[in-house]
């Protein structure tokens, strides 16, 4: 299925969890935040949160600096 990851189209497996998606991208939960349609998805729910067709997912991380 197709999702929008940080504004770009991406093919992912049906029923993929947000936790697995983050892991597949080589990211660690520490220092990472996710939002769907600007609603923040709490980390504790990532395992149960399933990605859906055409979902707009934004993933953020922290970088050094101000």
């Amino acid at each position: 299925m197709k999702i929008f990851f940080n504004g770009e189209e991406l093919e992912v497996d049906n029923g993929l969890s947000l936790a697995q998606f983050i892991k597949d991208r080589g990211l660690t939960p520490d220092g990472t935040a996710c939002a769907v349609d600007e609603n923040i998805i709490p980390k504790a729910t990532w395992s149960d949160f399933k990605l859906e067709e055409n979902m707009h997912l934004d993933v953020f991380t922290l970088v050094a600096g101000g």
């Binding site: 080589g26 660690t28 220092g31 990472t32 934004d58 953020f60 991380t61 922290l62 050094a64």
Partner: peptide
């Protein structure tokens, strides 16, 4: 530290750990 959208091509500067 500033919050940024991750690079969709993958990878990060791994500074947190």
């Amino acid at each position: 530290m500033a919050i940024k959208r991750v690079d969709i091509k993958g990878g990060s500067d791994d500074i947190i750990l």
